[in-house]
Amino acid sequence: MSDDFRTLVSRHDLGRPATRIAVRLVHVLVFVGVAVAGLGPLVWLAFASLNTTQEVLRDPFAVWLHADEWTNYAAAFTTVDMGKYLLNTVFVAVGSCLANLLVACSAAYVIAILKPRWAGVLSGAILATLFVPGVVSLVPLYLTILDVPPFGLNCRTPTGRCGCPPPRMRSAS
């Protein structure tokens, strides 16, 4: 376990009572802080999800008093079809994760390890895409994904419905 101790705070530091108390105090503060900030809102959300709309709206402070509306969860899967949307989300998450890994790893390897002469230009061009807000390319991007010629892919399905909805404004931060 000695490896575990080789951080900013050493075993020797903890030997001094004053330092030990100070370090412990910081640790307690950090724990309380992240627990309140990280867990607090989620706990409230969890309780609120077991209330009726009216109960949450009338008194948001009292959500734990009548957290018994389990039908909300059933309703999410029956009336709103959560299952289908979760599956869609998994599909998008896995797909974009794989694509991201492929592109990001290969690009990073080229730019940082192989360092060809054009590495600077490439990283600049990638950084530049961050500068332009999504709306600028919204319509052209949609036209782009409607027909992807090299692969013969396109989203105009035979039923006339568009398989892919147009991109929306993303949250920027």
Binding site: V139, C162, R168
Partner: peptide, 21 residues
């Protein structure tokens, strides 16, 4: 007569108009 679940949405209207669907 084809059908679509599309509803009015100002964020996608222009793109769909341009894309012809």
């Amino acid at each position: 007569i084809k059908t679509s679940e599309a509803t009015w949405d100002p964020q996608t209207f222009a793109a769909q108009l341009a894309g012809g669907n």
